[in-house]
Write a protein that binds this DNA or RNA. Structure first.
Lengths: 234, 234
DNA sequence: GCAAAAGTGTTACGGTTACACCCATGG
DNA sequence: CCATGGGTGTAACCGTAACACTTTTGC
């Protein structure tokens, strides 16, 4: 009850991130191939040890610098703690897992051991990293519905059909461009830039370019079933 | 990139829980008063050090045993990691924070330094514990809308108006008993037991007793704006 | 019979889906 | 002028909110 503690047990803390991006029409995650044991040749999430002078958010951003230019990370958020005593061989290591998102117009230079993999077709992964990837995917899918998190998958300017491709890839099913535009516009998340694209060789009406109005994540649809009573006018 | 780590830094890990219960018409949280420095006489969340042989979920349940009979904890879930380097004085300590829920018909024996406090009228709290309590409250409020988490606030059997009191206290605004019953029933979360209560001295129709159909938390309203296309009936 | 409390019926409303239709461009 | 891709209008649908009304009890 009182925190009279003995000396700290030999317990380490690592931070790991499932960095997701829509590439080639599918949602992909950044993994690196382990060269050494344990779990040599398995694919692993980027991350590393928490330092003494940083919090976990700072730590994961620092460690991701080695893989992805941090400016390309449009969004980072905590997922959960993974703490099974035997989750990694050797000394006890607790992991704080994160979701990271990279807009689709970025194609960062990667170290040679690092590659993007579709989240629905993962290679053999190390430790509990597959569970973390799935958690990240599910979190992203849920938040696409009730937040403006699409901004973190999309380029600064985009057509509605391009945005539709991004949402479809991330959600795993076909989304209607018509309704996507309407829902996001009504909520005030999307605004036209005024510019348009050139049609391709096949012709067609030039598409208007849109942008997200907010540059950071916001909950836009509180989805409360039991809402607070409406403020009465007059 | 490769996890060639030096020896583990002196970093501790604690688990903390905001245990919530609706008491006397308000949402309250279990806190204990610190006897010693640091932050003597401030109020603190229950919890303690993570042991080497347990994961964080196991740890928080173990530590809560000293405050609340574990059988009375109807629901426990992770909230987030709190890891600011200076969040507590002295050696570095990272905290895994949890939400715990106790049904309103339980009134556990408490140690003498421990007491329930309304979450909207907290005493002076220790460290970053107030932020954790607020996070727990917000999580509960959100989940009341799209999950069956009400089961963890309610007794095994209850009247709709009793349930209304619980939801109102937890959400912080008046909920309509009429619609509460309808929404939960339509979703199949609530079922009548067949029994009724006796009316009070003032008379009135005897209330039917209901129960939740599921004993564990389930997401019942996926609140997806961009829903998967409906399966067409033949 | 009257007041009190519980529960049901009904309508209104807001938001999303589905789909037909109109618009703009290249060949 | 036709094919192609982009965008809008409109109606149906679904679920919740609001509120009147009925039911069942004690006094």
């Amino acid at each position: 009850m009182v925190d009279t503690t003995t000396d700290a047990p030999p317990l380490g803390h690592e931070v790991l991130a499932a960095v997701l991006q829509v590439r080639a029409g599918s949602l992909q995650v950044l993994l690196w191939e382990r060269a050494m044991e344990p779990h040599a040749h398995r694919w692993s999430l980027p991350g590393g040890r928490l330092r003494l002078d940083e919090d976990v958010e700072h730590s994961i951003r620092r460690q991701l610098k080695e893989k992805v230019d941090v400016r390309q990370l449009a969004h980072v958020e905590q997922l959960a703690v993974f703490s099974a005593p035997n989750r990694v061989p050797g000394p006890r290591l607790v992991a704080s897992a994160f979701l990271g998102l990279v807009p689709s117009d970025n194609d960062p230079e990667l170290p040679s051991d690092t590659r993007w993999h579709p989240v629905d077709d993962l290679p053999l992964t190390a430790f509990d990293h597959e569970a973390i990837v799935l958690r990240a995917r599910n979190r992203l899918r849920a938040k696409l519905s009730y937040t403006n998190i699409g901004f973190a998958l999309a380029p600064p300017r985009f057509t509605v059909s391009a945005l539709r491709e991004l949402y479809s890839a991330a959600l795993g099913y076909r989304v209607s461009a018509t309704n996507l535009q309407r829902v996001l516009s009504r909520r005030g998340l999307l605004e036209p830039t005024g510019d348009t694209t050139r049609p391709g060789r096949a012709g067609g009406r030039p598409a208007a370019l849109f942008r997200f109005t907010e540059p950071s994540m916001q909950v836009t649809d509180p989805f409360a079933v039991f809402r607070p009573p409406a403020a009465k006018p007059s």
